[in-house]
Amino acid sequence: MDYEFHWNIVFQNMPELLNGAFVTLHVSVLAMLLGVVIAILLAIAKMNNTKFFCHVATVWVEIARNTPALFQIYMAYFGLGAFGIHLSPYVAVLSALVFINAGYLTETFRGGFQSIPTTQYSASKSLGMTSFQAYRYIILPQMLRRIYHPMTNQFVWSILMSSLGILVGMSELSGTTQRLQSLSFRTLEFFIVAAVMYFVITKLVLFSSSLLARRLFKGEI
């Protein structure tokens, strides 16, 4: 083994790496929030009887699920240029992640919703609940319980996939790592630290998600 590790330069650049990690979290949280909002709309559209909205939702979901994330990012970054739309790397990665998150979560939401038997709705109506109450106290809590894990996984997936920002020059964790290593040629050191940081971020997200689940569902999951 002839390689000599120089960790010093990595620690000198730690603030920048942490800043990159912050951008990674930032873009994935935003992608998740927007993705959830759009997915709710798409799920409603898919279960709706209006043909047009149903088709739009289906096309969105199938394209998002059946093409690579990298393709989506290239499409947003290079492809939209043909229409005169020039997105910054951050916006390109964000919109690609939102597009994919929405596609996957639509199916999650639809599946979660359909897994609650409709008789529960009728039962709550017969107990004198209003429609709103039936959804608020009966349907949605059960649904949330079923979609909680898939949503957590999707969030972790977004964090990991935001690393593709490296290919369009975005300054999130991997992009920052790429820039710093090209200045110092300590490729191995920088990427090892980046890998550790991704691992820690992922674990922290999973850990806090299970803490939250314990509080939300009181152990029944």
């Binding site: 390689y3 690393s163 991997s174 191995l188 990427f191 090892i192 991704y198 691992f199």
Partner: peptide
């Protein structure tokens, strides 16, 4: 767990740099 919690792109770059650095 490590393989699943580190982005694939980082794994690819790390591995190919690593075998390169090892000669």
């Amino acid at each position: 767990d490590v393989l699943r919690s580190v982005p694939l792109i980082i794994q690819l770059i790390l591995f190919s740099t690593f075998v390169g650095a090892m000669g």
